[in-house]
Design a protein around this nucleic acid. Structure first.
Lengths: 218, 218, 218, 218
DNA sequence: GATGAATGAGCGTTCATTCAT
DNA sequence: GATGAATGAACGCTCATTCAT
C-alpha cells in the first residue's frame, strides 16, 4: 500500500543531484511568484519538500540560489532557441521564424522560468542583472546576425549602420518579451500566434528598412 | 518665547502638498535605485528631509506610498503622451510619431520614474502589477487606436482583426519599453533617435500589414 | 500605590543615555554569566527591559555591544585605580598598597565587570583581546613604574633589567587577577585581605630582588 | 569486487583508541584556536580526518568532547608536575623549582592544551569551569603543601594561618598562569626564564613571610 | 568501522510601523 | 506640524545532532 505519490513524497535520502533539481524547481516557482526579495528561503525549502539547512548545504545562499536559477533557465532557453535556429543554409527568415516559434513555445511551457528571466533577474541589481543581460545579449546577437545576413542579401544593406542593428535588435527582443508575457497571461493565445504576429510585424518592417524606405513627415 | 533655535534648526512648517511632493520625489528616487523591497522607509524619509512618522501620517504605508508613486508617474507620462498625440485631424502616422517622441523624451527626462514604472512596479506582485498594467494598457489602447485608424484608411484594413491590433500594440509597446531602457542606459542615444528607430521599424511593418502582406514560408 | 520599582519598570520613553546604561548593565551581566558567544541578544534585551531592535538601534551589533562593555568597565577600573594611586610624593609602597586596595575593592564591587574584563574579553579573539590587553598593559605599566621607582631608591637597582620588570609586572598582575577571582568566589574573603596577601607576598619578594638576592640551588 | 577504490581512497580501519586520540588532538587544536562555542564539529571532524558521525559515535557530544579534552590535558599536566616535584626528601624549595620548571616546560610544549585549560575551560560556564577548577585546585594544593612544609621548617611558621597559605597558593598559581601565557606569546622567553622569574619573586617573598616580616604602613 | 543525507532549533539582524509628546 | 522612542514579526543563515546504509 501507499504506492504512487505517497511513495514519492515520503522517499527520503535522495541523491544530491535530484534534490538540487527539486530545489531549483521550487526556487524558480517562488521567485516568479514573489520576486527575489519577497520570496523566503523557508517557503522555497517547504515547496521543495526539504528542510532549509539542506538548501543552504547545496546552494549556499539565497544569492547563489537565484543565480543558479537564472543560469539554468537561461541556458535551457538559449539551447532551445539555438537548436531551433539551427542550419545556416536555411534562409534567414526561415531561421528567424523557427527561433521565434521555439522561443515563444519555451516561454509558454515554462512560464515561471520566463518570469524569472525577463522580469525578476533584470530588476534585482548587480549580480543578477549582468547574468540576465548576458542571455538577453546572446539572443539579441542572434537576431542581429539574422538581420545583418538579410541586409547583406538586400541591395542597399549598407544603408544600415551597426547602431541601427543594435537598436533594432533591442526593439525586437522587447517585442518578443512583451508578446511572450501577453501570450502567457492571455488565455487562448498560442505560441504560434505570438510568433506569427512578431514575424509579420518585424520581417515586413525590416524588409522595408533594408530597402532604405524610412518614415518621414510628409 | 523659544523663537530663535527652532527657526534656525531648519524646522520648516511647509504646507502638506509641498511635503507630499517631497516625499513622493524621494520615494521615486529610492524605489528606482533599490527596488521596492530593498528601499527602506528610513532612507526615503531622510532623503525627503522629514521624519518617518510624517511619511506615515501623509502616505499611510509603504504600499500606499509605492502605489502613489506609480499613480503619479503613470498619470504624468500618460498626460504627456496624450497631449502630444493630440489633434485627431492630424494623420495617424504623424500622431504616432508625436506620441513616440513625447514618450521617449519623458522617459529620458524622468529616468527614475521610468524605472519605477517599467521595472519595479511590474515585478512586485499583485497590488502594483495591476496598477502598472493599467497604464500600460492605456498606452497600448492609444496605439491600438492609431493602428486601427490607419487600418481603416487603408483599403484592406478589414483583413486585420481586433486581436491582431491588440497583439501589435503589445509588440509596439514592448519595443518602446525596451528602447527606452536601452536609450536611458546607453550614453549618446537621444530620445529622438530612439523614437525614429521605432517609427521606422514599426510604421513600415504596419504599412505592409495593412496591405495584407504577410510573411509565410516560401 | 505601585510606587518605587514598578514605576521604574513600567516607565517608558526614557532618554537614550539612560537606556544605553541599562543595556550595558544587562550586557555585562549576561556576558559574565554565559560568555560572549553563548550570551544571546534576546536575553540581554529582556534583562535590560527593552526590545531587541532598540539594542541594535543604540549599540549596533553584538560585537559593538561587547566592545562597549569592555571599554566602559576598563575605564571605570583604571580610573578607580589611578585615582587611588594618586600623589607621586607618597612613597611607592604606599601607592602600591592604595592601588591594590582600590583594585580589589572595585573587583569585589563589580564582580560581573571583573569577570568580563579578566576572563571573557581575553578569550574572544581579536577585536576584544586587544581591547582587554590595553587595560592590562596599562595596569602592568603602573605596577612596573612603581617597581622601577622602588628599585631606583634601592642601591643595587641596576641589577634588574627591563625584561625582569616586565616579567615581574606580569606575575604581579596575574596574582592580582587570581586573588580577585578567588576573593570574589570565596565567601568571607575581603578586598582588604586579598590586597594584604598580595602586598605581603609581592613587596617582600620585590625587596629581596632589589637587593640582588636571588634563589639558587644550594 | 570493488576492492581497489575503497582501499586507495584513504579509508583506514584504525582501532578505536587511535581514532579517539586523533579526534582529541584535533579538538584541542580547534578549541584553542577558536574557543569552545566557535569551534565547529565539522572542522574538528575534518581536522581529525574522520566523518562527523564517527566523532559522535566515540565522543557522544560536543560537551563530552570538550570535557574529554580538558580531562586529558589536565591529567597530563598534573602528571608531569607531580613527577617533577617527586621525592619528599628533597628540600621544598628544590621541589618547587622542579615543579615550576616542569610546569612552564609542559605549557610551552603543549601551547594549545595550555590555552584550552587556562583560557577556554574557565570561561565556558558550568560543566567546564568546575572541571578546570579541579585541576587548578590540585596544583594549588601542591603548592600550598610545599609552602606549609617550608613554614614548618622556619621558626615562626606558626604565624601563618591555613588561609594565608591558601591565599598565597592562589597568588602563586595566578602568577604562574600569567607568566606561562606571557612566555608562550612572547618570542624568546624560555620556560626556564619564566620559572626563574617566578621562583625569585615568590621564594624570597615567601621567605620573608615565614620570618613574620610583613609590610605595614610606616 | 564509517559515512552521505537530512533536520530542529535558534541566533543575529532588519524593517515597517506606532505611540507619546 | 513634526519627532524621538520603541517594538512585533520575520528573515537569512548556522550548527549540533541523527538516520539509513
Amino acid at each position: 500500500m501507499e504506492t504512487g505519490r505517497e511513495s514519492v513524497a515520503g522517499t527520503k535520502r535522495l541523491p544530491r543531484a535530484v534534490r538540487e533539481r527539486q530545489m531549483l524547481d521550487a526556487a524558480v516557482t517562488c521567485f516568479a511568484r514573489h520576486g527575489y526579495q519577497t520570496a523566503s528561503m523557508d517557503e522555497i525549502a517547504e515547496l521543495a519538500g526539504v528542510s532549509k539547512p539542506l538548501v543552504y548545504l547545496y546552494l549556499h545562499s539565497k544569492e547563489d540560489l537565484f543565480t543558479a536559477c537564472i543560469r539554468r533557465e537561461a541556458e535551457a532557453l538559449l539551447a532551445t532557441v539555438a537548436g531551433a535556429v539551427g542550419d545556416p543554409d536555411v534562409p534567414p527568415d526561415e531561421r528567424l521564424w523557427a527561433g521565434l516559434l521555439a522561443f515563444f513555445t519555451h516561454a509558454a511551457d515554462h512560464p515561471d522560468a520566463w518570469v524569472v528571466l525577463s522580469r525578476q533577474a533584470r530588476t534585482q541589481g548587480e549580480p543578477f542583472a549582468t547574468e540576465a543581460a548576458r542571455m538577453r545579449d546572446e539572443i539579441a546577437a542572434f537576431v542581429a546576425g539574422l538581420i545583418g545576413e538579410a541586409a547583406r542579401e538586400a541591395r542597399d544593406g549598407a544603408a544600415i549602420t551597426e547602431r541601427d542593428v543594435t537598436a533594432l535588435a533591442q526593439a525586437l527582443v522587447g517585442s518578443a518579451e512583451a508578446l511572450a508575457g501577453w501570450a502567457n497571461e492571455t488565455p487562448g493565445v498560442t505560441a504560434r500566434e505570438a510568433a506569427a504576429t512578431l514575424m509579420n510585424f518585424a520581417w515586413a518592417g525590416l524588409g522595408n528598412l533594408m530597402k532604405g524606405e524610412r518614415w518621414s513627415r510628409r
